[in-house]
Amino acid sequence: KYFGTAKARYDFCARDRSELSLKEGDIIKILNKKGQQGWWRGEIYGRVGWFPANYVEEDYS
């Protein structure tokens, strides 16, 4: 189950295995919004990890 999707506004390079690298334009499935302050958990291309919420724009459609 996921909470919708978000589109990456910027590139983000994961610093460890718990984080999710993003490329601008990627569409991420949002799995959890209750991580550390400002971090969401998501899935993209079969990978799961945490990413900074301010790097994405949530899709409300």
Rank of each mutant, 00 (worst) to 15 (best):
K1G: 09
K1N: 15
K1E: 11
K1V: 09
Y2W: 07
Y2I: 12
Y2F: 15
Y2Q: 12
F3Q: 11
F3L: 14
F3V: 13
F3H: 06
G4S: 12
T5F: 15
T5S: 10
A6E: 01
A6N: 01
K7D: 02
K7R: 13
K7V: 11
K7P: 00
K7M: 14
K7G: 04
A8L: 03
R9C: 07
R9V: 11
Y10R: 15
Y10A: 14
Y10L: 11
Y10Q: 15
D11G: 09
D11S: 09
F12H: 13
F12V: 02
C13S: 14
C13R: 14
C13V: 15
C13L: 13
C13K: 10
A14M: 01
A14N: 03
A14W: 04
A14F: 02
R15N: 06
R15L: 05
R15V: 06
R15G: 08
D16C: 13
D16I: 02
D16L: 06
R17T: 13
R17H: 12
R17S: 15
R17W: 09
R17D: 13
S18Q: 06
S18G: 10
S18W: 09
S18L: 07
E19P: 04
E19K: 01
E19H: 11
L20N: 03
L20G: 01
L20S: 02
L20I: 07
L20Y: 04
S21G: 07
S21T: 08
L22R: 02
L22M: 11
L22C: 06
K23R: 12
K23A: 09
K23W: 02
E24T: 14
E24R: 15
E24K: 13
E24A: 15
E24C: 12
G25W: 05
G25Q: 00
G25I: 00
G25R: 04
G25L: 01
D26S: 05
I27K: 09
I27S: 08
I27P: 05
I27T: 14
I27E: 11
I27Y: 08
I28N: 01
I28P: 02
I28W: 04
K29F: 05
K29I: 07
K29Q: 08
I30T: 00
I30W: 01
I30Y: 03
I30L: 08
L31T: 11
L31H: 08
N32K: 09
N32E: 15
K33T: 07
K33Y: 06
K33P: 06
K33M: 02
K33D: 03
K34H: 13
K34V: 12
K34G: 13
G35Q: 08
G35W: 04
G35N: 07
Q36R: 14
Q36N: 09
Q37K: 13
G38I: 01
G38L: 05
G38K: 09
W39L: 08
W40H: 02
W40S: 02
W40D: 03
R41E: 14
R41D: 00
R41M: 14
G42N: 03
E43P: 07
E43Y: 03
E43I: 05
E43R: 08
E43T: 07
I44F: 09
I44K: 09
I44T: 13
Y45N: 15
G46E: 08
R47L: 05
R47M: 07
V48N: 05
V48H: 06
V48Y: 10
G49M: 01
F51G: 01
F51W: 00
F51E: 01
P52L: 01
P52F: 00
P52K: 05
P52T: 02
A53H: 13
A53M: 10
A53L: 05
A53W: 06
A53D: 04
N54P: 08
N54K: 12
N54Y: 12
Y55I: 14
Y55K: 07
Y55E: 03
V56N: 02
V56R: 00
V56K: 04
V56P: 03
V56D: 00
E57C: 08
E57Q: 12
E58A: 10
E58H: 05
E58M: 09
E58W: 07
E58Y: 13
E58I: 07
D59W: 14
D59P: 07
D59F: 13
Y60T: 14
Y60H: 14
Y60P: 10
Y60R: 14
Y60D: 15
Y60S: 14
S61Y: 03
S61L: 12
